[in-house]
């Protein structure tokens, strides 16, 4: 089986400071991988390098493209990479307003990716947008409302709909539940789990919330100071952490 994403030696420096160093892993179709670590551990830098938002100093991010098979997205031409970014890839930002167009209706937000890949039938686009709003549990009657009138949880769900409408195969998520209150988080996690399963998505989720990765991720990378210090099955890393830092991380969680 070919990995969907094969990452080798990804390194990014900010001057003398290490963003992330020598990260490598394979992600297979349908797998969800969590990346955990404290603030500044390099998890967001890594995610941005993987998603093509940052150019790494070294390393390869080989994606199994539909048309040409495995291809290094770091050396790929920019148009090609951006095309991936709106077809096979999706990126869910921590703050919904970074990933939404706040001045455009919910329907327009969801429809944008469809129009970007050439859909030119208004009725079809609107139909798909409405369908997706319902799938993320937003009332179809709000299709013409702007995201500014939505609650934080709804905005985040709208962002997810906007990203998934083109049926991507790989979703990058940066703290998708950060900043939401707990009951809204649970609903979002449930939704994400369902979508991941039903669409056979692969996902890479950056978070500092260990409960989130336990529920969503099959596998886990633990990062510290830009390096991966431990990797493995999510429940194994959380229940039987091997590295000193992982043990500290796991034992630092407050029990409810």
């Amino acid at each position: 089986m070919t990995p969907l994403l094969s990452v080798q030696g990804i390194t990014k420096h900010y001057g003398a400071h290490i963003g992330c160093a020598d990260v490598a892993f394979d992600l297979y179709p349908g797998e969800v991988m969590g990346i955990v670590g404290e603030s500044g551990s390099g998890k967001s830098t890594l995610l941005n390098c993987l998603a093509g938002h940052l150019a790494p100093d070294a390393g390869q991010v080989v994606f199994d493209t539909r048309a040409d098979g495995p291809k290094d997205t770091v050396t790929m031409s920019e148009p090609e990479r951006r095309m991936l970014g709106r077809t096979d890839w999706a990126f869910v930002h921590q703050h919904a307003r970074d990933g939404l167009r706040m001045g455009v209706s919910a329907g327009g937000n969801v429809g944008e990716r469809l129009m970007a890949v050439g859909d030119r039938h208004y009725g079809d686009i609107r139909g798909k947008a409405t369908d997706w709003l319902e799938r993320v549990e937003i009332d179809a009657g709000r299709v013409d409302d702007r995201p500014t009138t939505f609650s934080g949880g709804m905005q985040q769900r709208l962002q997810i709909a906007r990203n998934l409408v083109t049926g991507p195969r790989l979703v990058f998520m940066d703290e998708p539940t950060g900043g939401l209150d707990v009951s809204v988080q649970a609903r979002l996690l449930d939704l994400l789990r369902g979508l991941v399963r039903d669409m056979g998505l692969s996902a890479i989720i950056v978070t500092h919330d260990l409960a989130v990765v336990r529920l969503l991720a099959d596998r886990l990378l633990v990062m510290k100071s830009g390096r991966v210090v431990e990797a493995g099955l999510t429940d194994q890393v959380l229940d039987d952490p091997q590295h000193a830092y992982s043990q500290l991380l796991v034992s630092s969680v407050l029990q409810v």
Binding site: R101, S105, G108, G111, E112, R113, V117, Y122, R126
Partner: peptide
């Protein structure tokens, strides 16, 4: 430069929606 013009249609979409 990359001919990414989906956004232009978003404007027209918004018109029809409204």
């Amino acid at each position: 430069s990359l001919e990414e013009y989906g956004l232009m249609h978003v404007k027209l979409y918004e018109d029809i929606a409204r």
